[in-house]
């Protein structure tokens, strides 16, 4: 956790003070150093969720179920933050907060779909059924997001293609890489904590509680 904080602070210093301003966008582009890593971690979380869902259906285990829950929740937070930052970034550079661009739209669908997934997890009480059903829902969502991307790509697109490290100032590449590492560590920290909580919840739900001591005996003792 100390390491995570150190890398994040160093990354933020690099992003805000050390990296040179961009030729066209000036200082505004610096929000990119948080926006890009956040969205990437959101997509990483979705990949983990998909892998855990498939793994759970192949071989049931509370560990994969807990990791699926943790990745969906942490991923949703990262993706929502990343998309919000992207929207703030879009206003000065594109002139609008929102555009019906493939990546933006896929992220919006991503967020709504995983919100539905988490709602499903809340609304089912039986832990085994919850695990199976949310694994099915997780697979269905993971299959859907790429289709959304391609279906919207047939409309006109505004989002810039990814810049390759070759065309970008090496200082910017260095800064972005440190920030990606920082957010990755932050993601792992959150994921680990959330996973431990989810696993503890599964344990509590599935272990049979101690038989209640009768009131009279409790009074007598």
């Amino acid at each position: 956790m100390v390491l995570t904080a150190a890398v994040l602070i160093y990354g933020a210093w690099l992003a805000l003070a050390w990296a040179p301003p961009e030729r066209e966008m000036g200082d505004v582009y610096r929000i990119m150093y948080a926006h890009v890593p956040l969205v990437q971690m959101g997509l990483l979380a979705a990949t983990i969720n998909f892998a855990c869902s498939v793994a759970y259906l192949l071989r049931a285990s509370w560990r994969t179920d807990a990791l699926a829950e943790a990745s969906a929740e942490v991923g949703l937070v990262f993706a929502a933050l990343g998309t919000t930052l992207g929207s703030i970034f879009g206003r000065p550079t594109w002139g609008v907060f929102w555009a019906w661009d493939p990546r933006l739209t896929s992220m919006a669908v991503f967020i709504v779909a995983y919100a539905g997934y988490l709602a499903l997890r809340r609304f089912v009480d039986d832990p085994e059924k919850r695990a199976v059903w949310s694994a099915v829902a997780g697979i269905v969502i993971a299959v859907d997001v790429p289709i959304v991307y391609f279906s919207v790509r047939w409309w006109k697109s505004l989002h810039q293609m990814q810049s390759s490290p070759k065309t970008v100032d090496p200082q910017m590449v260095y800064t972005l890489r440190w920030n990606i590492l920082g957010y990755f560590l932050l993601f792992l920290t959150f994921l680990g904590l959330r996973y431990a909580i989810a696993l503890a919840q599964r344990r509590r739900e599935t272990t049979v509680p101690e038989p209640a001591r009768s009131v009279s005996r409790a009074v007598a003792s």
Binding site: G116, L120, F123, D125, I141
Partner: peptide
């Protein structure tokens, strides 16, 4: 599930 009337559109519409 509980709250099934809310849950179905919530799961289905994004897909």
């Amino acid at each position: 599930a509980r709250a099934r009337d809310v849950l179905l559109p919530l799961l289905l519409f994004p897909i």
